[in-house]
Design a binder for these strands. Structure first.
Lengths: 232, 232
DNA sequence: CGTGGCATTGATGTGGCTCAACGATAGTGG
DNA sequence: CCACTATCGTTGAGCCACATCAATGCCACG
């Protein structure tokens, strides 16, 4: 097997970016790339944590659920993001692909050992984890204290910022038009709402001229300032 | 100044536990202990992140809020826990003492530099941060998908587990009787409810014989299995 | 041209919020 | 020691935002 990493699309953004060529060769030896089709699950909540991975391409969701089937999406994972629970026996979330996705997977034990020998990698992972923690806590404010409309507006704004795909375009700022990688039910699962409420809110925003909905999965933000105002 | 660390109550549980005596001396040199009275705020959301700290004693809350004054508590911090945002310019949460508290504080820059030179410390911090992230995400399920009663029951169960203070008693299991470090409003801010709802739920649980409320801040769990059942 | 999976829309119900009053408790100063 | 007051908690009545239940519409697929 040759070194895939030097042609890797996320080489300069994933946690691997802190490794030099030799280290990358070593890391590459213990990993392999894998393609996941939309809807397929990579790991299950509660199962023991056998894998960790870097996302090369596609979008995945992290979710937890109650026994009676209610689901909450607790994180969205994009290219260059890290997946899984190193140094821990159990996966705490289910990881499912929302689009077709390519990931670079490692056996958790192998990765743990490698990471412990490469402090720079652990440092990068720590930084990412701290950022994710801040993001998760910020989302808790949305879930616990915001109204349905505030949730929806906040969601659309965040999406328009996070979907700025790193195309080689230099920092284009938030997008005014983008395709959501989610269906309505999944938006509901992100915001802690029902699918009907999500639908009603979107059509209301459309009728009010704040956004447009060219197709089921596309959104155009027409009046960003008003949307921000509605985000609470 | 002498080494306070060797008599530190959290010496074996805080992140410092991975340091040897010499390293501890060095760390001690850049830190100092500080007492915070109940209700006092140690750092503010959005302010630049000047401090990090270890909690020696007491309980603190992490919170975020909307512009119009709604608050969400996003984390509770106990002795041996770590506070603050290393390697990042801005504090994302407000940190406020709920009880009188003693913390071991460091200038963020000093701590960052020290941590980068001590991979074992960063590793420990990474583990903690990963655990906190799992906890935060789990809490998102509660905030987004659980009913008020399920939130309350989950909260009481979690408290009975986390307040098992490490008295030198060997692993006593969850407590059936404990004092909450929170008033009703703060419970509401943790669960994303109003104070009135919190009050009604507690008296309902009491009337149903599931718990008892000996005083304002004390709780006795009488029927843990039923409480678990109501936690959803 | 059906068929099945999403999405929208409407009618109705209800859990938890809001507003308002009252009660309990702890601290304070006479 | 007790009245006084501020703070916190409890309780009730009413309402509203969002859930629930139930049709209907829209495509994309064979």
């Amino acid at each position: 097997m040759s070194i895939a990493c030097d042609t890797c699309v996320v080489r300069n953004r994933a946690i691997c970016s802190v490794l030099d060529t030799d280290e990358l060769v070593a890391l590459n030896r213990i990993g392999r790339t894998r393609t996941i089709s939309a809807g397929q699950t990579l790991m299950w909540e509660g199962e023991d944590s056998a894998l960790v991975a870097n996302v090369l391409d596609g979008v995945l969701k992290l979710s937890t659920g109650t026994e009676d089937g209610r689901e909450q999406i607790v994180g969205i994972v994009y290219p260059a993001d890290f997946i899984g629970r190193p140094f821990g026996a159990r996966a705490q979330q289910t990881v499912t692909a929302l689009t077709e996705a390519r990931v670079c997977v490692f056996a958790r034990g192998d990765f743990d050992a490698f990471a412990r020998e490469h402090p720079a990698l652990e440092h990068k992972l720590l930084q990412r984890t701290l950022t994710e923690l801040d993001r998760a806590r910020h989302w808790m404010l949305l879930l616990g204290r915001k109204s349905a409309m505030e949730k929806m507006a906040s969601f659309l704004l965040e999406m328009s910022e996070r979907l700025v795909q790193n195309g080689c375009t230099p920092d284009a700022g938030p997008l005014d038009r983008f395709a959501l990688p989610f269906g309505r039910q999944q938006i509901a699962d992100i915001l802690g709402l029902t699918i009907e409420t999500v639908s009603r809110l979107l059509t209301k925003l459309k009728n009010d001229g704040v956004i447009d909905l060219p197709s089921r999965r596309e959104v155009t933000i027409l009046q960003r300032d008003i949307l921000r105002h509605r985000a609470g």
